Amino acid sequence: MPTYTIAELAREFDVTARAIRFYEDQGLLSPSREGVGGRSRVYTARDRTRLKLTLRGKRMGLTLSEIKTIVDMYESPKDTVAQMNRFLGALAHQRETLEQQREDIEMALAEIGAHEEECKRLLAEATAP
């Protein structure tokens, strides 16, 4: 089974070692320890997958607790009704959040467009002969 160092994972996923240690503190990763005094972290393929899913969840705008719930479900049997309902609930909540953000962005862009047009109109009037 392949193993990874914190530096290898940081480089592969373009995150800092500090971020990886933070995800470990949050219970998302659980590397084994090796070396003198157990100072070296050794990450397994499981940890790599969990980091990949964590970063994907962050890009989707999920909180770390939501990510942890989903990632933990990923590793458990997927045929329980309670787990599937909880997962669907998390997805529905995130969809609502993202749709509201999209609406807010569209409104902000429309306002910016209106201000740009007004500025262009005023500039044209100010520079007209």
Rank of each mutant, 00 (worst) to 15 (best):
R48W: 03
E111W: 01
T63L: 08
G27Q: 04
M1Y: 07
T16H: 06
T127L: 15
K58G: 01
K78I: 13
V71M: 09
E111G: 02
E66M: 14
A128L: 08
G37R: 06
T5L: 09
E103G: 06
L28E: 09
L53N: 05
G27A: 10
F22A: 02
L109E: 01
S30W: 14
I20W: 04
E99L: 14
E24D: 13
M1T: 06
L55E: 11
R46E: 10
E111Q: 03
I70A: 07
L62P: 04
T63M: 12
R95Y: 14
R50D: 05
E24N: 13
D14V: 06
G38I: 04
V36Q: 00
I67Q: 02
I105E: 02
L9N: 09
T44P: 13
E96F: 10
D25A: 13
I105M: 07
L28M: 14
R86Y: 03
A19I: 02
M1W: 05
R121D: 03
Y23A: 05
K78D: 05
V15C: 03
K78M: 10
R48V: 11
L53A: 09
K78T: 12
E111T: 00
I70D: 03
K120E: 09
E116W: 00
I112D: 00
E118K: 10
R86C: 13
H93R: 13
E34A: 15
V36H: 01
L109F: 04
P31D: 15
A82Q: 08
P129E: 15
K58C: 00
L51Y: 03
K120I: 07
E118V: 12
A124Y: 08
E66P: 09
V42W: 05
L123E: 12
G61L: 08
R50Y: 03
A45C: 03
P77S: 05
T49N: 04
E117L: 13
G113S: 01
Q26C: 10
R102V: 11
L62C: 07
F13K: 06
V36I: 04
R33P: 00
T54C: 13
R11G: 03
V81Y: 08
E117P: 02
A124T: 14
L109T: 01
S65K: 12
S32F: 01
L98F: 03
N85I: 12
M84I: 15
R41L: 05
G113D: 12
L109N: 02
P31A: 14
A90Q: 10
L64T: 11
